[in-house]
Simulated scan of single mutants.
Amino acid sequence: MPRRSYDHYCAVSRALDLVGDRWTLLVIRELCAGPRRYSDLFADLPGISTDMLATRLKDLEREGMLTHHRNGMRSSYELTDAGLALRPVLDALSVWGAPRLGDRKPTDAVRAHWLALPLGHAVAGIVPAGTVTVHIGETVLHYVITADGVTHHDGPASAPDRELRLELAEATEIATGVRSLTV
């Protein structure tokens, strides 16, 4: 099936031609923290079909936004520099969307690492530079805060400047701006 296009000579239109399809930015969100296996992506994108995930991964690879590493029976997907360049877009969407989350509906899926983008702003507010490991329930991720911005990565930092432990409800309140992060 040929890819649909807006056929507008417009930078926003061209960008949306590449990443505006359903699920595409969420696949990129999952890969912002580092390489992931197909099964991990599928598990952390509830509601996506295997066909849709495979299609999105192939599209992103074809467009040079991710690479597929094959190592025998194990393979993983990782963002290229072009894919990582979308992080500020995701960050802006998370800042805009966090206050609009509202109350969680019983049908809403949730993963603690989905709070990583908006939570990063709160973490950077208490540690202007360095690394911070954050435990949200069973999920562990870390932030690297530099003058260039904030990035998050799977797992703990090897030598964090600070370590935080939050429950999912606390992390949600901090990410949505309902409460401040204090240490």
Results as ranks from 00 to 15, higher is better:
74 R>F: 11
74 R>C: 00
75 S>L: 12
76 S>N: 04
76 S>H: 10
77 Y>L: 09
80 T>S: 04
80 T>I: 00
80 T>F: 00
82 A>L: 06
83 G>D: 02
83 G>T: 09
83 G>V: 10
85 A>F: 01
85 A>V: 04
86 L>A: 05
87 R>S: 03
87 R>Y: 10
89 V>R: 06
89 V>M: 13
90 L>F: 11
90 L>M: 10
91 D>T: 13
91 D>C: 01
91 D>N: 02
91 D>A: 10
92 A>H: 12
93 L>Y: 09
94 S>M: 13
95 V>F: 03
96 W>M: 11
97 G>I: 03
98 A>R: 14
103 D>E: 14
104 R>D: 03
104 R>K: 14
105 K>W: 13
106 P>S: 07
106 P>T: 05
107 T>M: 08
107 T>G: 07
108 D>P: 09
108 D>K: 06
109 A>M: 03
109 A>H: 14
109 A>F: 13
110 V>I: 13
112 A>K: 03
112 A>D: 13
114 W>Y: 12
115 L>D: 08
115 L>I: 08
116 A>E: 06
116 A>T: 02
116 A>F: 03
116 A>V: 05
117 L>W: 01
118 P>E: 07
119 L>G: 02
120 G>A: 11
120 G>T: 08
121 H>K: 14
122 A>T: 04
122 A>I: 06
124 A>I: 06
124 A>F: 04
125 G>F: 01
125 G>L: 02
126 I>V: 15
128 P>E: 14
129 A>H: 07
129 A>M: 13
130 G>C: 13
130 G>M: 06
130 G>L: 12
130 G>T: 13
131 T>F: 00
131 T>H: 09
132 V>A: 05
133 T>V: 10
134 V>W: 00
136 I>V: 15
138 E>K: 15
138 E>G: 12
140 V>I: 15
140 V>D: 00
141 L>Y: 05
141 L>M: 14
142 H>F: 08
143 Y>R: 06
143 Y>N: 07
144 V>D: 15
145 I>Y: 07
145 I>T: 02
145 I>P: 10
147 A>T: 14
148 D>Y: 10
150 V>Y: 04
150 V>L: 09
151 T>W: 02
152 H>D: 12
152 H>A: 11
153 H>S: 12
153 H>E: 12
